[in-house]
Nucleic acid binder design. Structure first.
Lengths: 261, 261
DNA sequence: TTTAAGTGTCTCAAATAATGAAACTCGGTT
DNA sequence: AACCGAGTTTCATTATTTGAGACACTTAAA
């Protein structure tokens, strides 16, 4: 997934195993891993052992299963707290959530996927890693499309290739051509909409966050339900949303998107 | 920190580097890492390169600094969502928070340190240091002492050795002997108190979570401020707290503490 | 302009760690 | 009792990692 071409030695393989375990979303047996693994048995065995020793995986000796280790949570906290957009953006998205009274999301792009790094619900706003860390597809979310639209062309192409174009709802854009048309529109407009493309009944308006060099570093969105809002009504939030995005962008002027984005 | 003795090959070294970068809590230059690294220059160089390629570190080419990569956030989300106590404990701590009207914390022990894995605030009256993914010392927090007290002796000893015994406040227990006395008391009593030992003005009552085999898998606490509660008043919450801890423990019967805990 | 010092990057033979076919355990079946 | 399958270990082979040192490149002082 990352650097499919060159496997980056043993460390790369180990991380590949981490990804594999994560993809199961449940404790997994060695044999299950082995069945879907490019590595021969003893190699995989040693990798999971090492990772377990290190606390990156957790081994349950009773059931003989592996799951993700808590050490990751600790490491990720650091990433989240000191190297994502969160520290810069927090005050602005909180203010925005309070003002519009709807959920506000902050996302970055991680290898073609939208990674939600923060979320403020106007009501109870203490969610942390709960929502943060969640991933969603880029092609059918407001934040995803907003980021995609403003990416440099080479990276954009790569990202567009990585989308699955699965139809989550009848409104999902299910091919690259359709997405590209939409993206051209978004680039012109400056805003992206999620018209129930990912989840039925959920709509959002998103705006890219551009840093001082005009590089897209993430996106903010206001998400709501079709019970309370229509796209037309959401459009009225454009000034609020844009102001917040600009403020975050200005402050993130010196913040850099990691090179592998 | 983990397995200081045996370095687990290249993968172990790479993870050591991740820890080191995390410990800076800010973007860090290669030379800074090198200065505190056991590895020779080219080795460290290749490690950070590999980790950056993999998205575990993020390299800022402008400032030539490394910080934690967002890929970690994604991986950690998996750990948090599917392998911590959180999925089991969520409903109970939410109910408890609603009932007592104070912040409830859920913690696990990660290599001698308290790792807060979840938190429910009933209201917004005060800010603790605690947030999901955040770590705190074991020896001066309610949850930490509760877990330590009920650990098997061998692991307990190891954990007690790992504590720093820094005096965060005048009330902090600053040596192993004092902590051991306290721990004996806690084991007898079944409850641990934080009497402003970590943060001035913040007190808590904590209860260990024991699984079906009587093994401690974490702890729950009710944390509050000295403005609203005294330790005496907190004691009245013992039945509520214990009930929640027992319910979580029962459900986590089959949940296993990772072997490296 | 030159010299020097500090960083980051690259080279290559030597040292070491990773590899994987095959063999071995150890439950639970047939 | 023999078989099977999942997990674990062995060990000679192979490939990767290693690290002293050399090389760029930038900045700072001479």
């Amino acid at each position: 997934m990352y650097n499919v071409s060159n496997a980056d030695g043993t460390v790369g393989k180990a991380i590949q195993v981490l990804d594999q375990v994560a993809s199961f979303r449940r404790p997994v047996r060695f044999s299950e891993l082995l069945a879907n693994s490019p590595f021969p048995k003893p190699t995989l065995y040693r990798l999971v052992q090492t990772l377990s020793n290190q606390g990156m995986l957790a081994f349950d000796p009773e059931r003989q299963t592996y799951s993700m280790g808590i050490r990751l949570v600790r490491l990720a906290h650091s990433a989240w707290r000191y190297s994502s957009l969160v520290p810069v953006a927090r005050p602005y998205i909180e203010a925005l959530a309070a003002k519009v009274g709807e959920a506000v999301h902050l996302a970055q792009l991680d290898n073609g996927h939208v990674l939600f790094v923060d979320k403020c619900k106007a009501t109870d706003h203490f969610e942390t890693l709960a929502q943060a860390g969640k991933i969603a597809p880029g092609y059918c979310t407001g934040v995803g499309k907003a980021i995609l639209a403003f990416m440099p062309e080479v990276e954009q192409n790569r990202a567009l290739d990585q989308q699955s174009y699965t139809a989550y709802t009848p409104f999902t854009l299910t091919n690259r051509a359709a997405l590209m048309t939409e993206i051209a529109q978004i680039k012109e407009d400056g805003f992206a909409y999620d018209r129930e493309e990912h989840e039925q009944g959920i709509i959002s308006i998103a705006c890219p966050i551009l840093n001082g060099q005009g590089r897209v570093v993430g996106a903010v969105s206001i998400a709501t339900s079709t019970n309370r809002y229509t796209i037309k009504n959401l459009e009225k939030q454009r000034p609020n949303l844009m102001r917040s995005a600009n403020l975050i962008g200005a402050e993130a002027e010196l913040w850099q998107v990691p090179i592998w984005n």
